[in-house]
Amino acid sequence: MKIIRISTLPGYEEWKDNAKSCLLDYIPPSSIAWKDINEPQDELFAGIKSKKTPPSSPHKPVLKVPKSFVELAQTACCHKDPERFSLLYKVFWRINFENRKLLSQSLDDDIILLNKMIKEVRRDSYKITAFLRFRETLYEGKEHYVAWYEPFHYTLERALPFFTKRFRNMNWSILTPYRAAHWDGENVLLQDNPDPSQVPDEDRIEKYWLTYYAGIFNPARVKKSAMLAQMPKKYWNNLPEAKLIPDLLHNSEAKAREMIDKIKA
């Protein structure tokens, strides 16, 4: 069994180099154990690092994948499931040796899994554009907007084009548990393992947002499950308004009754 440990995040480039050389050596998916950075390093195999295996087979397979596979693989690599690399290798293998059109077989079990991962990553990349909240601060005398955000997958990089477009003329920093991105109006600077204490605890406008959020809620129409479907609790840490939800729900009945009483009066 060959063990390959991908030590970067999300890991696409590193996976790709390794996958290519493994395929060129005809190493079948069942003979490789792919590990990601978060898996405990096995003592026995400590020291074995991922590296390009020198090509050894005389008959080189032609490495060809449909264009769309690259984008799909990049996306799937952002998933936090450590199984992503072995699944991708299996699909990569099957495209080359079994069926060129595998990707369009939407009912194939591997493709179902792959599509599910991709869907989850896309959703998570969308949620970061929705749920991230900036706080204003001063940095070197200039307005600077800072956010702490905990994505569910490794989706910071995927979301950056949205932020550089929308907030092009602002200086901002987005900090996530694994990486931060800093924008100065022209360039993005990435930094690993940022320090969350750099994020301000307060913002002068946030109280208005909370007032607004509480104000537009209609206590007579509570639909908690509809809210949770779109805004699962795992995202609440990112949302200043989420701390209001328990009270809003708790008071909603009384509020609704008060409204009805007023109507009857």
């Binding site: 929705a130 749920f131 949205f162 129409r221 509570v222």
Partner: peptide
Amino acid sequence: SAGKGEKGIGSLTGGSGICHSFTPDGRCV
């Protein structure tokens, strides 16, 4: 969106806009 060197803030992403939050009545904010 504002292009390079252009002033301003904001963008439209096409489609029907992002839901930035949801209130306990299940509605998109």
